[in-house]
Design a protein around this nucleic acid. Structure first.
Length: 600
RNA sequence: GGGGGCGUAGCUCAGUUGGUUAGAGUGUCGGCCUGUCACGCCGAAGGUCGCGGGUUCGAGCCCCGUCGCUCCCGCCA
């Protein structure tokens, strides 16, 4: 008989009755009936009940076992009587009669119970991650993650993609996020950077003629964390394709995402390809964000013209961009509901307020109520009702600002909040969309300059000659430029960003010039890629959906730590391993480094 | 860098208007119990109320500071 086990703890069924078996695992739960002791033995595969009576020579050994001790038990599989079968356990028809028990490892009193499904403080969970990972919920999430990644790999290979690895120690790149730096021992004062994404490498792979690349790629960015943004590191399904248009990329990615999501949907419905394509401008208008949650039925509409009408006496909205956010069914909400939203807009969104109108039916006629209703004459009100598809029992909120982007942002935040508070968001759905036609550049108000608004390697949607001839001071035209740049969004979460790339060295130099980088500087920073483009580069494009976020959506959790085996905390520390930590003077010396601590 | 929330027993939490010896559940330890599966019953141990200062006759509670965790803003091409 094997030293540790003949079966797993999730394996035994009625047909095994009579066999003599050996199981190893953790003591999940101990029930002491004095004369009779039950031990639930748990491993990765399941739980099996083991039982022992006092006359057994192994009784003393079994009796001293406590939660989370690791033990090996041997004995016959016995059928349980009809009354004692446990329908909640797959192994619930049988139990092991313990004849022999060996303690492999004892456990101290636990800082984090394995049994049960209570919430525990994040700090404890992270410090004792190995215990949290034993618990059913996290154990299942991490297993799901593995299955999702394996499914993605299989589907990508089926689509004709080839997986390649790219360097982890590479060069720092300008633009984008803060780099993690690694000092070079052999080159004093010089540094490697961890890749923010394998962006340049995957483009070089296309230049090298490999046609369709993918990788489950680790990416590193030294930026502050959020619930859906791990500190430091995360994984992308990085992919790139040669000789493709934007539609070809969509057509390659959609079946993979749909397939994976459908495989792990557990009853939820998944958008069927082709996913809706929404331009950036349309998204900002209708949803107020560039990552709309399409489960929320609210659609924002522009009503600036209605309030500009001379018949409307409401001065606060004159000469402003006004967006209307319909709130279906909100007409029956108490006054406090509207006050609360107004307070939220003022305090959290730093807006002057959130005006509203409530529509009620009175003696067969639609009555508009609320602080600003009286300023709007009937003909204009009729247009408003029609444009926003409002009816009796609904309300409508207004976001107004001289700047369109600010009006849109408040409207978008209000839309999300209303969706939640009015319970309009359809759970049980996974709704995808592509956001396309992102602007190539944006105005940086703080530094009074033009920045890339997304990926500097995207191809502008503009003729080559016209682009090369662009006047650097023609702000109007430049800020109006769109790029072949797209995001994929699911349930309001940005899964990935991608583009048809700029494979023309002249266009690329010009693109950087517009963003304030001299030609020589661009040549120096991107010499590897620019040089490659001068030796025959195929048109290419790709994208990179975030693996962690995909698993998060599929697991139905709202924090990345729930789907990451060993996550860091919000301050980018690993409490279990003690990272980051100091290093020895000798290590610093080898790396030609001296630490200068910040003054307090 | 800024804003919000939280911090009381190993763990999860309660703690009234500032007022006697800070409680419960769970876990741990001891006793009882032969069919439980969140087993049950009896008992015990277990507290720097995050830390420091202040107000007060008196602070877990009020004030100031600080630390930790977390969520958000900035940031994340």
């Amino acid at each position: 008989m094997h030293a540790y086990r003949t079966h797993t703890c999730g394996q035994l069924r009625r047909d095994a009755v009579g066999q003599k078996v050996r199981l190893s695992g953790w003591v999940h739960r101990r029930r002491d009936h004095g004369g009779l002791v039950f031990l639930d033995l748990r491993d990765h595969y399941g739980i099996t009940q083991c039982v022992i009576e006092p006359d057994s020579p192994a009784f003393a050994g079994a009796d001293r076992c406590r939660s989370e001790w690791v033990v090996t038990v041997s004995g016959p599989v016995v059928a349980r009587s009809a009354e004692t079968v446990n329908r909640d356990l797959p192994t619930g028809e049988v139990e092991i009669r313990i004849e022999e028990i060996t303690v492999q490892s004892v456990a101290q009193e636990l800082p984090l119970p394995i049994f049960g499904d209570l919430d525990y403080p994040e700090e404890t969970r992270l410090r004792y991650r190995f215990l949290d990972l034993r618990r059913e919920r996290l154990h299942n999430n991490i297993t799901l993650r593995s299955q999702v990644i394996s499914s993605i790999r299989r589907r990508m290979i089926e689509q004709g993609f080839t997986e390649f690895q790219t360097p982890i120690l590479t060069a720092s790149s300008p633009e984008g996020a803060r780099d993690f730096l690694v000092p070079s021992r052999l080159h004093p004062g010089q540094f490697y950077a961890l890749p923010q994404a394998p962006q340049q490498f995957k483009q070089l792979i296309m230049v090298a003629g490999f046609d369709r690349y993918f990788q489950i790629a680790p990416c590193f960015r030294d930026e502050d964390a959020r619930a859906d943004r791990s500190p430091g590191e995360f994984y992308q399904l990085d992919l790139e394709m040669s000789f493709v248009t934007q539609d070809d990329v969509f057509a390659a990615v959609e079946p993979v995402l749909h397939g994976v999501f459908n495989e792990f949907a557990r009853g939820r419905t998944v958008s069927v390809p082709p996913f809706p394509r929404i331009s950036f401008d349309e998204a900002m208008l209708k949803y107020g964000v560039d990552k709309p949650d399409l489960r929320n039925p609210i659609v924002i509409c522009d009503v600036s013209d209605l309030f500009a009408d001379t018949s409307v006496a409401f001065k606060a909205f004159k000469d402003k961009v006004v967006r209307a956010i319909p709130a279906p069914g909100a007409g029956h909400q108490p006054r406090s509901f509207f006050d609360r939203l107004n307070d939220w807009a003022r305090s959290e969104m730093k807006a002057p307020g959130l005006g509203y109108i409530v529509f009620e039916e009175e003696s067969g006629k639609l009555q508009a109520k609320g602080p600003i209703a009286k300023f709007i004459p009937d003909p204009v009100m009729a247009q408003l009702l029609q444009r926003c598809a409002l009816k009796a029992g609904d309300a409508v909120f207004f976001s107004a600002d001289p700047r369109a982007d600010k009006a849109a942002a408040l409207a978008g935040a209000a839309r999300i909040r209303l969706g939640k508070e009015l319970d309009l968001v359809a759970s049980g759905e996974l709704k995808f969309c592509w956001i396309v036609d992102f602007p190539m550049y944006e105005w940086n108000e703080d530094e009074k300059r033009i920045d890339f608004s997304h990926n500097p390697f995207s191809m502008p949607q503009y003729g080559r000659d016209a682009f090369l001839a662009l006047d650097l001071t023609d702000k109007q035209t430049i800020l109006g430029l769109k790029a072949y740049q797209y995001d994929i969004v699911c349930n309001g979460i940005e899964l990935s960003s991608g583009a048809i790339r700029n494979h023309d060295p002249e266009v690329m130099l010009k693109a950087f010039e517009i963003a304030g980088y001299a030609r020589e500087e661009t040549e120096a920073r991107f010499s590897g890629m620019l040089n490659a483009f001068r030796y025959g580069a195929p048109p290419h494009g790709g994208t990179a959906p975030g693996i962690d976020r995909i698993v998060m959506l599929l697991a139905g959790v709202d924090n990345l730590r729930e789907v990451t085996m060993f996550p860091m905390n919000q301050q980018a520390q690993d409490l279990m391993m003690g990272a980051p930590g100091p290093v020895s003077a000798r290590q610093l010396k080898e790396l030609h480094l001296r630490v200068v601590k910040p003054e307090v």
